[in-house]
Simulated assay, not measured.
Amino acid sequence: MNTKSYIFVAGASRGVGREVVKCLRNKEMNVKALLRTPDTRPELEAMGVEVVMGDALEIAAVEQAILGPETISAVISTIGGLPKEGERADYLGNKNLIDAAVKAGVGKFILVSSIGSGESVVALPPQALETLASVLVEKEKAEQHLINSGLNYTIIRPGGLKSEPATGNGVLTENYRVAGMIHRADVGQLVCDCLFSELANGKILSAIDRNMAYGEPDFEVLDLS
C-alpha cells in the first residue's frame, strides 16, 4: 500500500510551475507533475519528481493522474498559454484539474491566475487589458469554477512576470487594485507559502514585488506567518 502523499503540479515544465516544483523539492515534499510533452521529463525526474504524461485538456488523462494509487494532498495549477485547436488550457485545462481534484477529495487547490482577472481588471491599464482580454476571460472562468467547486482554495494573481532570480521581495495582498511586476521565482515561493498556511485559505490574492508595484503605493500585505 502506497501511503506517501503527493503535491500534484500542473504546469511544471517551465515558468512559475517549475519554480513551484523547485521550492517544494527544497522542502523535501513528494511532487507529482503532469507533463503534456516529454521534453522536460529528464530534468524533473532528476529533481526527484514523479512525472505522469497527459494533457490537461483531456479529462480522462487528468483523472488517471490525480485519482491514481498515490494520495494527492494538494493540487497546484500554473497552466495556461497557447491554445490547442481553439481551446485554451486557462479554463478547460483548469476545469478538468478542479473536477478531478473534487473527485479525489484533495485537501487544497492553488490556482495561479493573473492580475486583470475578475475584479482586479481595474488594476491594469487599458492597453494591457486589450492585449490580454481573451486570456483573462478564460482565467476568470477558471477562478469561478474553483470558487464554486467546494474545494479549499487559494487563487494567486501575479503581476507582470520576469525570469530573473528571486528578489525575496514578493508579497501577497487582498487589494485587487494593486498591480506591478514580479519574478517567477518569487511567485513560486509565494505559492509554497500559501500551500503551508491556513491564512491563505479561501483567499484571492495579488502577487507583486513590493519594489515594483504601481497603482496603489500604500497597500496592506497579507502576512502568512
Rank of each mutant, 00 (worst) to 15 (best):
A33N: 03
M181N: 13
N169R: 13
L132C: 04
V178T: 00
A12P: 07
A33G: 08
Q127A: 12
I59N: 11
R25H: 03
V20I: 11
I59H: 12
G116P: 07
V106C: 04
G48N: 07
Q189M: 15
L172R: 03
E70K: 00
L205P: 05
T173F: 09
G81T: 05
D193K: 12
E50A: 13
V137C: 10
G17A: 01
T40W: 10
G215S: 02
L24H: 00
G188C: 08
D55Q: 00
I204Q: 11
G170Q: 01
G54F: 07
K141C: 10
E43I: 00
L97F: 01
V31A: 08
D90P: 02
L97K: 02
T3F: 13
P126Y: 10
G159K: 03
A46D: 13
L132M: 15
V51A: 08
E45G: 09
Q64G: 12
C23I: 10
I182W: 05
L124C: 10
L224P: 14
I182V: 15
T154I: 06
D218P: 07
K141I: 04
V112H: 00
Q64L: 12
A104E: 08
L34H: 06
I182T: 10
M47P: 00
T78D: 03
V122C: 10
L124A: 09
R177W: 00
R36Y: 12
N175Q: 06
F219S: 01
G80K: 07
C23S: 15
L34V: 00
I72K: 00
L146P: 13
D39V: 13
V49I: 06
V122F: 08
L129P: 06
R157Q: 13
R18P: 01
K103L: 14
L67Q: 11
G48D: 07
N2W: 13
V122W: 04
Y214G: 13
V191E: 06
D209M: 06
A213L: 10
Q189I: 13
G180C: 09
E216F: 11
V31L: 02
G15D: 05
S5C: 09
S73W: 11
P158W: 09
G118F: 00
G180I: 06
Q144T: 12
L35H: 02
E198P: 04
P38R: 05
I7H: 06
P126T: 11
V121W: 12
V171S: 05
A101Q: 04
S149F: 05
E87S: 10
A213G: 13
I66C: 05
P42Y: 11
R157E: 10
N148Y: 05
M181S: 15
A33K: 03
L224Q: 12
L97H: 01
E220V: 15
E19I: 01
V191K: 01
